[in-house]
Structures are given as structure tokens and as C-alpha cells.
Simulated assay, not measured.
Amino acid sequence: MTANRGKRRFLLALCSFLALLFGGLGIWQIERLAWKLALIERVEARVSAPPGPAPAPEAWRSITQERDEYRHVAVRGTFDYASETLVDALTERGPGYWVLTPLRTATGTILVNRGFVPREADSPADRAASQQTGEVTVTGLLRMAEPDGRFLRPNDPRQDRWFSRDVGAIAKARGLGPVAPFFIDADAGSSPGQLPVGGMTVVRFRNAHLVYALTWFALAALSLVGLALVLRSREDGR
């Protein structure tokens, strides 16, 4: 009798814990769903808007991901092709590199992701046709720097191996001086040559939070059913 009571108490505690755990995870996924829907709406509105001026240096410190990322911006300056950086990329076109080129403007330096090149076209000669001399106007999407790396692969400035678009580290390695805390993903067709390929910013976000929420709530319901069965067995055992 004592063993049965101990077992029922354990099952009651377990079912109660699982119901609370799964219910909490379901609520968290609902909150994530609301966040994801707001993100999608915000990004869609920004990428389809006409380009506005890029933030000036006096506004760089106040830039935030929520308020500024994916804004469609325009900036005018001169490219410093000698200081380009290739950043490892895996895209719908396959593996390759993002070509990050400093743009020297009248007010400061901004790194521009001019687009994608495949691994076999990593030589500057392969994209020589796209190099524009003199002042140019660049339009694209404002993106936040990536100082935390990508897929846990740290950048290696000494070996000139870059896996994330960490503008601060790139600026330091290239001796660029102060740069904007963001970079610009250039629009499609921004380069006169075939390479780099611009306009490849991923602006479609996977949204499976509702499915996850329903799964967690279903597991919570099953835990409650288990709790009810344990309580019923205790009453029957009286």
C-alpha cells in the first residue's frame, strides 16, 4: 500500500510538472509567433520602400536592429577596391563569398556587401568589369554587423579567413579607421558586371511557431489526461 501511494505521488508530480512545462513552452511559442509576424511585416515594409539616406555618423551610435535593420538606403561615395574582404557564404547559388568593399563617403566609411561570387571566381580579375571609378550611388538594405561569428566558426583575421560580416574586425584588419557599425547589402543590378551578384539578402523567414505551439499544447493536454487518470486511480484505490 505504501509503495502504491509513493508511486501515485511520483506520477502526480511528474504529470503536473510536464503539464506546466509543456504549457509554458506553448505560451513561449505563441509569443515567438507574434514576434516573427511583426518582424516579417516590418521587413516587408522596409525592403519595398524607396531608398532613403543612410544614417550619418552622428546617428551611428543610436542605430538598433529592431528600428533600422533592412531599411532601404542610398549612399554616395568612392569604392576602395584594394581593401576588399571576402566573407564565406552559403547561398541558393551554392558556396562562395560575399564581397565586402569599403565605400569612402564625404562623412565616413561604410562597408558595402556588393554581392556574391562563387569559389572559383574569387580573384579580383573575375570581378574587374564591375569596378566603378569615381563617385557612385549605392542602394541596398542596411544590415547589422555580425560580431558573434556564424555557425560558431570564429573569424581568423591573421589568416584572412572570414566567416561573418564583422565590420569592426574587418576595419581593424584592413586599417580602414572608423567605419559605420552596419553594412549595406547592395541591390540587384548594382554592379555593371556579372559578378558580384547583388540583391541576395534573405528576407523570407521561416515561421513554424504555430505548429510548435500546438505541439506543446497537445503534450500539455496529454499530461493533464495522465494527471486525471492518476487521480482517478487513487480514488478507485480507496
Score class of each variant (00 low, 15 high):
4 N>T: 10
6 G>M: 08
8 R>Q: 12
10 F>A: 14
11 L>W: 14
14 L>Q: 08
15 C>Y: 03
16 S>P: 05
21 L>D: 04
25 L>W: 03
26 G>H: 10
30 I>M: 14
36 K>V: 11
39 L>T: 05
39 L>F: 13
43 V>G: 12
45 A>C: 03
46 R>F: 11
47 V>N: 07
48 S>K: 15
49 A>F: 06
52 G>S: 12
53 P>M: 03
55 P>I: 09
60 W>T: 05
65 Q>M: 10
72 H>A: 03
73 V>F: 02
79 F>H: 04
80 D>A: 10
82 A>C: 00
85 T>Y: 10
90 L>M: 03
95 P>A: 13
99 V>W: 04
99 V>R: 10
100 L>A: 04
105 T>M: 08
108 G>M: 11
109 T>A: 01
113 N>G: 09
115 G>I: 07
117 V>R: 05
121 A>H: 15
125 A>M: 11
131 Q>E: 13
131 Q>R: 15
132 Q>P: 00
133 T>S: 15
135 E>F: 02
137 T>R: 08
138 V>S: 05
140 G>S: 11
140 G>P: 03
140 G>M: 02
147 P>D: 08
148 D>W: 13
149 G>I: 01
150 R>C: 01
152 L>Q: 13
156 D>K: 10
159 Q>T: 12
164 S>C: 06
165 R>G: 00
166 D>F: 05
168 G>D: 14
170 I>R: 07
172 K>N: 11
172 K>C: 00
179 V>Q: 02
180 A>F: 05
181 P>I: 08
189 G>Q: 04
191 S>M: 12
191 S>Q: 14
196 P>C: 05
201 T>Y: 08
209 H>K: 09
213 A>Y: 09
216 W>F: 15
222 L>F: 15
224 L>V: 15
226 G>E: 02
228 A>S: 13
229 L>H: 11
238 R>D: 05
